Structures are given as C-alpha cells and as structure tokens.
Simulated assay, not measured.
Amino acid sequence: MENIETSEWFWAIVEKAALSREKLKEILISFSKEEIIRFQEEFVDASIELQCEPYTDYMEESEDGREDIANWVVSNGENFYFEILDKPEKIPYNVSDFTEKILYGIADEVCLEKYGESTGIYT
C-alpha cells in the first residue's frame, strides 16, 4: 500500500463529523486558517489517490462523478478509506444518491466565511 499523507488528526475530524456537512462546519469554524487549509490539503490528497487506476476501472466515466465518489469514500472515514485502497473493486460505481454526505468543500466554505478567502486547494 502507498504511503498516504493523512494524519490521525485529519481522520479524527472526519470521524467526528460523521458524514454531516453541518457538523464538519461546526468543527472547522473554531480552527485557525492554517488548520482549515491543512484539513483541506489532507482531504484533497486522500481523494486524489482514488481518482486514478485501478479505482477508476470500477467507477462511472464522468470526471465529476469520479471526484464525488473519491470524496465520498474519504468522507466515510479512515477504516473505509483504507479498505477501498486495499480492495479497489469495492469502490462504488456511483454515489449520486449520497452527495449530501460528501464532506469535501466545507473547509473552503468555512475559510471564506471566517477569513474572506478560500483555501485555494482543490482536486
């Protein structure tokens, strides 16, 4: 398995958010700008790992759909994420029914709201 640059700090936040965009926003609003950017960086790094082969072999074809799938997997936490890394065939083909449970983008919203600018980090 590749060495993914995600910390226990990052996964603890994802776990606390429990697939709730609103809960993640509540957590991140108390963070410094640097912490919000760090969270976004780790999220993007983890997500990008799933946006290439062999994972894309099991996903829908659209680029947006693949991003959503990867972001959804990260949003589901550390155990699920590493299970998918080990077994690419378990990645969902599509997550269009679950997009409200994707935590990607919240860090940007909070950073913009609190500091007047986005994190500048995107997939």
Results as ranks from 00 to 15, higher is better:
Gln40Glu: 13
Gln40Leu: 02
Glu41Ile: 13
Glu41Thr: 09
Glu42Ile: 15
Glu42Met: 12
Glu42Trp: 10
Phe43Gln: 11
Val44Gly: 06
Val44Asp: 03
Val44Leu: 02
Asp45Arg: 12
Asp45Thr: 14
Asp45Cys: 12
Ala46Gln: 12
Ala46Trp: 13
Ala46Phe: 10
Ser47Pro: 06
Ser47Ile: 02
Leu50Asn: 04
Gln51Cys: 05
Gln51Leu: 03
Gln51Arg: 13
Cys52Gln: 12
Cys52Ser: 10
Glu53Gln: 14
Glu53Trp: 07
Pro54Thr: 03
Pro54Tyr: 09
Tyr55Ala: 00
Thr56Leu: 15
Thr56Glu: 12
Asp57Met: 12
Asp57Tyr: 10
Tyr58Glu: 08
Tyr58Asn: 11
Met59His: 14
Met59Thr: 15
Met59Ala: 15
Met59Gly: 14
Glu60Ala: 01
Glu61Asp: 10
Ser62Ala: 02
Glu63Tyr: 05
Glu63Pro: 03
Glu63Phe: 06
Glu63Gln: 07
Asp64Arg: 04
Asp64His: 01
Gly65Met: 13
Gly65Val: 07
Arg66Thr: 06
Glu67Thr: 11
Glu67Arg: 14
Asp68Pro: 00
Asp68Cys: 02
Asp68Gly: 04
Ile69Ala: 10
Ala70Gln: 08
Ala70Glu: 03
Ala70Trp: 11
Ala70Arg: 11
Asn71Trp: 10
Val73Asn: 03
Val73Ser: 07
Val74Glu: 14
Val74His: 15
Ser75Asn: 09
Ser75Thr: 07
Asn76Tyr: 10
Asn76Gln: 15
Asn76Asp: 09
Asn76Phe: 13
Asn79Gln: 15
Asn79Pro: 08
Phe80Met: 14
Tyr81Ser: 08
Tyr81Thr: 12
Phe82Asp: 07
Phe82Gln: 01
Glu83His: 13
Glu83Gly: 12
Ile84Met: 12
Ile84Ser: 05
Leu85Trp: 10
Asp86Thr: 09
Lys87Gln: 12
Lys87Trp: 02
Pro88Tyr: 03
Pro88Glu: 02
Pro88Asn: 11
Pro88Met: 04
Pro88Thr: 04
Glu89Gln: 06
Glu89His: 05
Glu89Asn: 07
Glu89Tyr: 02
Glu89Lys: 01
Glu89Ser: 06
Lys90Gly: 00
Ile91Pro: 03
Pro92Lys: 01
Pro92Tyr: 05
Pro92Leu: 02
Pro92Asp: 01
Tyr93Thr: 06
Val95Ser: 04
Val95Pro: 04
Val95Gln: 04
Ser96Cys: 01
Asp97Glu: 07
Asp97Thr: 05
Asp97Arg: 08
Asp97His: 02
Phe98Lys: 03
Phe98Gln: 02
Thr99Ile: 11
Thr99Trp: 00
Thr99Ser: 02
Glu100Arg: 05
Glu100Ile: 08
Lys101Val: 00
Lys101Ser: 03
Lys101Arg: 01
Ile102Phe: 03
Ile102Gly: 04
Ile102Asn: 04
Leu103Asn: 04
Leu103His: 00
Leu103Ser: 04
Leu103Ile: 01
Leu103Thr: 01
Leu103Tyr: 02
Leu103Phe: 03
